[in-house]
Amino acid sequence: MDFRFTENQQDLIDAAKAFFIGENTAERMRKIAAGETVDNLWPQFAELGLLGLMAPESAGGLEQPLVVMAGVAEAAGYAGLPEPCLEIAGVSVPHANEEELSGQITRAMRSELRPHIDSSLADSGEVVMSIDPLRKLVKADSGNDQNIDSINHHGAVLSAAQLVGLSQRMVDMSVEYAKDRHQFGKPIGSFQAIKHHLATVYTQIEFTRPMVHLAAIKGGRAVHTAKVAAIDTAMMAAETAIQVHGGMGYTFEVDLHLFMKRAWSLCGEWGDRNYHMKKLEELVLEGDEPLGPGTTFS
């Protein structure tokens, strides 16, 4: 029992985070939103080992478990990364057979900004715009993949992990804003009303992240709990962040909206709150799963 990332795993995640934040700057995000061309990051994703993070060593991958990809996904959420790196590397690659595997990675490397894929939409090939200006949806067949349970597990965990990262980012942005913005002759961050709002969100984040890690490793009801917790935390983070930013938060003048809109989008992806709550109703309230002390990890 050591419910922490190993040193190597943490190094991988830290490197990914530094890369995401360094490359996907607010300026880059604004350019994409405005329809301008930006650097293609896919070769670097591959170079850092991120695309093959979960691929078998025999295929040149790092063969890391889903929980490490969740760490990377949190970092991607924090950075507001628009590329569907996680969907490719964390959902497609682990469920691809060997021939598909090399194809997936090279195709991903070659592409420009691949659109996010929302599996809840039917297949028509039509591109749909989201309120998130960095997100293009393609109507795709949700399919009858034989691995559908595992695919849903990966997708839900990685979307929850991104929501944790986004929540953290929105808190950090709000803290910076509250330190800087003065009213009544002092920084608004010195007022308890602001402090308490942000401390509440911080606390929710701290009690969501480990749940996401558990969900990655254990699957089952932990996944539904993690996604619901991540959704509730992210919505609270977004509402708190806009409140702390005041009128500025309601505009395109600050970048908060980019992260907030990504959060809204991910809340509905890979099972919305209703889907996961209904699953919990079946499993926890109406099912016969063991409940109580000692049943979370065993």
Binding site: D2, R4, F207, M211, T225, A229, L291
Partner: peptide, 27 residues
């Protein structure tokens, strides 16, 4: 039922976070 599940989920989250904290303290 939503409230009951919310309460149950909170205890699961508290458990996961505590095991993670204990792992950190033991390290």
């Amino acid at each position: 039922s939503e409230q009951v599940l919310q309460a149950w989920m909170n205890t699961e989250r508290f458990c996961a976070a505590t095991y993670q904290l204990v792992s950190r303290v033991q390290a």
